[in-house]
Computed example of a mutant assay.
Amino acid sequence: MSKVSILDKTFEIYLSNTQIQERINQIGRAISDEFHGDELIIVGVLNGSFLFMADLVRRIELNFVCDFIKVSSYQGTESTGQVKSLLGLKESIEGKSVLIIEDIVDSGLSMEYLLKELSSHRPKRLAIATLLFKREAFRHKYAIDYVGFEIPNKFVVGYGLDYDGLGRNLPHIYQLTTP
Rank of each mutant, 00 (worst) to 15 (best):
L114R: 07
V105L: 13
S79P: 14
D103W: 04
S97W: 10
N25Q: 13
I24M: 09
R59E: 11
G95S: 01
R122F: 00
E12I: 12
V83P: 03
L89T: 09
L109S: 06
I42Q: 02
S73D: 09
Q19V: 05
F50E: 00
L40C: 03
D38F: 07
H121M: 13
I42H: 01
S97Q: 09
K96R: 15
Q26H: 08
K116M: 03
S107E: 10
S73Y: 05
I60P: 00
T10H: 08
F50N: 06
R125A: 12
K90V: 03
L7I: 13
F52S: 14
D55I: 00
I101K: 05
G28W: 00
L62A: 04
V98M: 08
L99T: 11
L15W: 04
L118A: 15
S120L: 01
D38I: 09
D33M: 06
Q26I: 02
D106E: 02
I104P: 07
L118S: 15
V43N: 05
K90M: 03
Q19F: 05
P123L: 06
P123Y: 06
Q19G: 04
H36E: 12
S49Y: 09
E78G: 07
V105W: 05
V71M: 07
N25G: 12
L7K: 15
R29K: 12
G48I: 13
V71C: 14
V45A: 02
M111I: 14
I24P: 14
Y14E: 10
S32I: 00
H121Y: 11
M111G: 05
K116P: 00
L114Q: 00
L87H: 13
E102C: 14
F35H: 12
F11H: 10
G81R: 04
Q21K: 13
S79K: 05
L86D: 14
D55W: 01
F35N: 01
V57A: 02
D55Q: 02
L62Y: 02
E112A: 13
D55P: 03
D103R: 06
E91C: 12
E61W: 03
H36Y: 10
G108A: 07
S92Y: 08
K116T: 15
S49R: 06
S85C: 08
M53G: 08
S92N: 13
I31M: 08
I101V: 15
I24Q: 09
